[in-house]
């Protein structure tokens, strides 16, 4: 069941353009699966009218904690990143469908680009808990984009690309040598749309099962306003409700 809850910011970690917010609720958390998101109300920013959809980076059900990795892209997220420890942050959660769970025997690859690595943290953690050790392929413009890299590495073998070559292989995630060396049963992708399209094209050639997490502009986050639609084989569907995770076969990419 979805809820509207005030969370207290209990820890903020600065990563330059992004911040990691650890938020605690006084109530028990509802069930939340990897790939779902929250709608955050941004208080005290006159130019920010709507909530901001942010993916769930991590959950600790024992402590009623949700972590968000927030990249400052506009006025709303900039304001959110300025919140101080102890501040209350109102969220509607959990929203969207989340990633589908792979079979225990599946070879799983998680591909993240830029801030798109955020939801893969919780996903990799849950997978490992189910005895599935994923392979991770994380890309960024530069090494500073690869936030918490050491923490990601604990979940599985992790490969890296950067556009400037400052870490890992130089180039985009689709250019990494891993694609030649390994094959996977299930591939999950979150990142900028051009990057996800490129991965989708690559996996279509190999005929591999693949899910991508979209981030179309949203208003309600509940499937009511029909603003965030993606054109699919079933027509225009709400990314907030039927997504944000879609099988690439369903998309008209």
């Amino acid at each position: 069941m979805k809820q509207i809850t005030d969370f207290k910011l209990i820890q903020k970690q600065d990563f330059g353009r992004s911040v990691l917010l650890r938020l605690r609720s006084e109530q028990p958390l509802p069930d939340m699966v990897p790939g779902q998101f929250v709608q955050v109300r941004v208080d005290g920013s006159p130019s920010t009218y709507l909530r901001r959809p942010i993916s769930i980076h991590d959950v600790d059900f024992q402590r009623n904690e949700v972590s968000l990795l927030v990249q400052q892209v506009g006025e709303g997220t900039r304001h959110l990143a300025q919140a101080g420890e102890g501040d209350l942050i109102n969220m509607v959660l959990p929203l969207g469908n989340g990633f589908s769970m792979p079979e225990k025997t599946d070879k799983v690859l998680l591909v993240g680009g830029g801030i798109g690595i955020a939801p893969l943290y919780y996903f990799a953690k849950v997978l490992l808990g189910k005895g599935i050790r994923p392979t991770l392929l994380l890309g960024g413009k530069s090494q500073t984009d690869l936030i918490r890299l050491e923490d990601y590495q604990q979940f599985g073998e992790t490969f890296v690309t950067t556009e400037d070559g400052s870490l890992g292989e130089k180039g985009f995630v689709t250019m990494h040598s891993i694609w030649q060396k390994h094959s996977f049963d299930k591939i999950y992708v979150c990142g900028p749309k051009p990057m996800m399209r490129a991965v989708a094209k690559l996996v279509a050639e190999k005929d591999v099962w693949c899910e991508v997490s979209l981030e179309n502009l949203m208003a309600c986050g509940l499937g009511a306003c029909l603003c965030c639609v993606e054109d699919t084989v079933d027509g225009n569907v709400c990314v907030c409700k039927e997504g944000p995770v879609f099988n690439t076969r369903r998309l008209k990419w």
Partner: peptide
């Protein structure tokens, strides 16, 4: 799409 733009 896009069908929405935030305004003041």
């Amino acid at each position: 799409y896009p069908r929405m733009a935030e305004t003041p």
